[in-house]
Amino acid sequence: MLAAFIMAGGSGERFWPLSTRERPKQLLKLIDPERSMIRMTVDRILPLIPKERIFIGTNAIQAAAIKKELPMLPEDNIIVEPSFKDTAAAIGYGATQISEKLKVKSEKLSKEITMIVLASDHLIKNEENFRQRLTTAIETAKKNKSIVTLGIKPTKPETGYGYIETEECYIGEPAKVKRFWEKPSLERAEKYVENGNYLWNSGMFVFQISTMMDSFNKYMPKHSEIFGNIKRISRIENPEEKIKEQFEKFEKMSIDFGIMEKAENIEVIPVDFGWNDIGSYPALDDVFEKTETGTINRNGKIKEFNSRNNIVIGTGEKEIGLLGIKDVVVVETEDQILICKKNEAQNIKKIIR
């Protein structure tokens, strides 16, 4: 049986002032004027997985907005984490909850649930190709009892992503992971791309739940113990407060550091389906068409002179003039205005705290 777990607990800091903690990037219609990022993610996997087995992992602040945004999903499929404890706790808790919920819904449920873990705010241009690669990952995870990740074939020496090193690298063909690498310097990233056997770490995973829980037992036993406690507590009446107490015991740790960098049964499928994690405003340079001056204009009335390579997002109510300006992000909302150099966009969180 297949299930999907979409992680949607982002803080919304990198796309301020468009996004807020209550309405982060995944709830914005940033790419498609008709659909939010999370709605695009759900629509992307509906041909593979029925809505009854698509689950969302989020927090109490955003849960109501997500339920409103995804009315086609059963309300019980919104899994609310009591506190943010990073991706290891989120994925393990999601796997535990999904197992319990599907057992309740189906008396004929087989012991093995294959779980697809996705981010809620990534852009994928070739969705048919994406589903084909996911199908390969599903088959590989079942056959080899492995944890499979999708590795993006680099298009440039990017310093903002982690990398996955493989022994061989052929698009669409599963390969053994040799090592995970943290975000590199530009010089090292250039070598990775030149070597040809390094992939961007997409943060997308496919595994049988039993395989992942075995890995927690082996590499993160404290997490595993807490999952067991939560599983027992979940069966009592009004368990929310006790589950919250257990959550506070989790050490904050990513799934990459806790399991992926240690486990031996990790495989990667090299892919090239037009992926972009839309991590900050400059990522939009790879998404939208530009004016003759290289500027992206989204819903803004702009006048440019001696200006180029800017990103302008406006309400359409005010005219924005750019004079002698280049490589700048200008974002206007009803209440706030952001102006920053593109190379400072990663630091937006420093001015909103």
Rank of each mutant, 00 (worst) to 15 (best):
W181P: 01
N306I: 14
I54P: 08
V331A: 07
E158P: 08
T135V: 11
T166W: 04
L199R: 02
I243H: 03
A4L: 11
I49M: 11
R44T: 12
I325Q: 10
M213T: 08
K29Q: 09
K101N: 08
E139D: 12
M213W: 04
K191T: 09
N217M: 12
R35H: 08
N217I: 08
I266V: 14
T291F: 01
E75S: 15
I320N: 05
E100R: 05
F55N: 01
T149D: 05
T96C: 13
G12P: 07
I54V: 15
K68Y: 13
K153G: 03
A283H: 09
F205M: 11
V268E: 03
D256V: 13
R133M: 13
G10M: 04
G12T: 07
I38K: 00
V271M: 12
K125F: 14
K176R: 09
E168C: 06
F180K: 01
I266E: 08
Q336M: 13
D214W: 02
D86P: 05
A119M: 14
E317F: 12
T159V: 15
R35T: 08
M7A: 04
T135M: 10
I116G: 01
V148H: 04
K178C: 03
D286A: 14
S99E: 14
E158D: 15
R39I: 07
I56G: 01
L199E: 01
Q208Y: 04
Q97T: 10
R39L: 11
K142G: 07
M72P: 05
V80Q: 04
T149C: 11
E225L: 12
G196S: 06
D121E: 11
G203E: 09
P174W: 02
I164T: 02
I233P: 09
E107T: 06
G57M: 14
E34T: 03
A64L: 13
A263P: 05
A263Q: 07
E81L: 15
E332S: 07
L123E: 05
N195M: 10
K252L: 10
Q97G: 08
G196I: 13
A345N: 06
G228F: 03
P154D: 02
Q346M: 15
D76Q: 14
D285L: 15
T87Y: 03
A64F: 12
G12V: 10
K218I: 15
V80K: 00
L322Q: 06
T293Y: 11
D76M: 13
F273N: 02
K68D: 14
F257Y: 11
D285A: 11
Q336H: 13
A141F: 08
S110W: 00
L338K: 03
L123H: 04
T58Y: 05
Y198L: 12
I171C: 00
I302V: 13
D121P: 09
D32K: 00
I45W: 02
V117S: 04
M213N: 01
E69G: 04
E194Y: 01
D277R: 02
I226C: 04
S234H: 06
T58V: 06
L186V: 14
G92N: 04
G172A: 08
Q62D: 05
A4I: 12
I233F: 07
V42T: 03
A88K: 00
E107S: 11
T159D: 05
C340Y: 03
R131V: 10
N197P: 07
S19A: 15
M115A: 02
N197K: 02
Y192Q: 01
L18F: 03
E69I: 10
